[in-house]
Design a protein around this nucleic acid. Structure first.
Lengths: 189, 189
DNA sequence: CGCGCGCGTTCCGTAAACGGAACGATCGGG
DNA sequence: CCCGATCGTTCCGTTTACGGAACGCGCGCG
């Protein structure tokens, strides 16, 4: 499917969360605990009240921009890292559900970075791209079979696959669980 | 540097008081006028008060996340487009400049996806992480040498490297050009 | 000309986000 | 076993962001 060609229906499944606000809380909590930081300590470093931070992580509050800025700075991350995802374009194919995270436009090529999800057992093929286009997948969870149809590769969590996309290629979740992966597509200019 | 260590050594805590909101206001105004939309009309579409929007664009208010979400949606842009840039703290080490793009926290592990830049010729080491943590780099441009200090790998554009981060490791741009890459860090739970 | 419509700003009462303090729970040391 | 320290949550008074209404202004039409 490869983003650009994806369009067919796979429809369904869209609970469509009410707002991205609910996502910010867990993300802050994840970033905080990864750093081994307590709620009290992060509140202190960010100069916000513990009640504010507690409510923010729990999703029971509606934080102001100042609060988000202070927390992001204390975590050492960009504010975009806390709020990313809410409005990202989604691309749904027959089997593959991709979310465009970022477009890199520097250098002699353009890169599109996607997060990819494939339900267990699902499979999908994609037609050839222009010459020189390559795809790079890093698997987070599940067992991914992907690559050119004549020479696919299979990898599990932590694994990596890449292939030239100027020939028909496909993606499949061959294990018992859904596949979660990141997909980087490189378009030479 | 790896995020976790960067937050401690790096920019971290700062006042960041005026910076945030001051940048968002003009950006909203620019996006609105580009679309030939009046303030009243955008307020109506976003279901926010005109006073709220007026103060937001003027920078005299401190908008909540809900307000920002509503305005971003009505403008048809991702929330990140409103808050991107403006004084966003980068994670800057001795040589490596990293930007956290996304955190995935829904699997049996937490993943942090970074964009990484290393100036030509620069080099940096990072202390060990917790056991089980792995890092995965995909090179966009330049020649990257990275991995555990006792067994680093070297790859060019399109190349991929991975290593266990529970031992000291490093990153270096060994070619004549800057290195641009994506770095995925996996934290088992 | 006068009138109506829509513009962006300002005023105002209400809802809620804020920081500080108090709370029970948990942990480690004497 | 008790005690102090720190954890995260909850309560509370203050601050303030919110939406609705009123305001002054500029424009186009009858």
């Amino acid at each position: 499917m490869d983003a650009t060609t994806a369009s067919e229906s796979g429809i369904g499944t869209g609970p469509a969360l009410p707002g991205g606000a609910a996502h910010v809380g867990p993300r802050v909590r994840a970033l905080r605990t990864e750093r081994g930081m307590s709620l009290s300590e992060l509140a202190r470093r960010a100069s916000v009240g513990k009640a504010t931070l507690s409510g923010l992580e729990a999703g029971t509050r509606n934080p102001t921009l100042d609060t988000l800025h202070a927390v992001a700075a204390a975590l050492g991350v960009a504010l975009t890292a806390l709020v990313a995802g809410g409005g990202s374009p989604r691309i749904r194919g027959a089997a593959v559900d991709m979310e465009l995270l970022r477009v890199f436009d520097d250098g002699p090529a353009t890169y599109e970075l996607y997060r990819m999800r494939i339900p267990a057992g699902a499979e999908q093929t994609s037609p050839a791209h222009h010459p020189g286009v390559t795809e790079h997948a890093t698997v987070f969870a599940g067992e991914l079979r992907a690559g050119r149809l004549d020479a696919p590769g299979v990898v599990g969590p932590g694994g990596y696959l890449e292939w030239a996309a100027d020939a028909p290629h496909g993606y499949a979740a061959v294990g018992s669980g859904d596949v979660h992966a990141s997909l980087l597509i490189r378009y030479p200019t």
